[in-house]
Amino acid sequence: MNDALSSAFTIIAPAQISIALAVSAILFGLGLIGFLCRRNMIIMFLCTELMFQGAALAMVAFARMRMDVSGQVFVIFILTVAAAEAALALGLVVLLYRRRETLNSEVWSELGES
């Protein structure tokens, strides 16, 4: 019988956690930059998914650091919210596209009836 601990229960090198956390911060920042500077509405929502991805990576890294699965459970809920958000946001984008025949978000910079 093999007495070794599975890899999920061994103490991980802190550098790996740090790298995962730094990458999650960078992904979140890139998502923010993309959301602020892209004009295509679909790409803007894609950038919010990029931010979700960064948050999920941080959750999994902390879960691995504490060897606790709560972080992974949280990622499952993030996936749920991301799926709901994608369904609604894309429905809205299609509605807006039917009205103005363009995906440019600047067309909608003035709110009001058109």
Binding site: L32, R39, T102
Partner: peptide
């Protein structure tokens, strides 16, 4: 609109601070 970013400098500064 897909090839010209809107206010790239401010966006990158915000991302850098974050």
């Amino acid at each position: 609109y897909d090839s010209i970013p809107r206010e790239p400098a401010s966006a990158v500064i915000a991302g850098f601070v974050l």
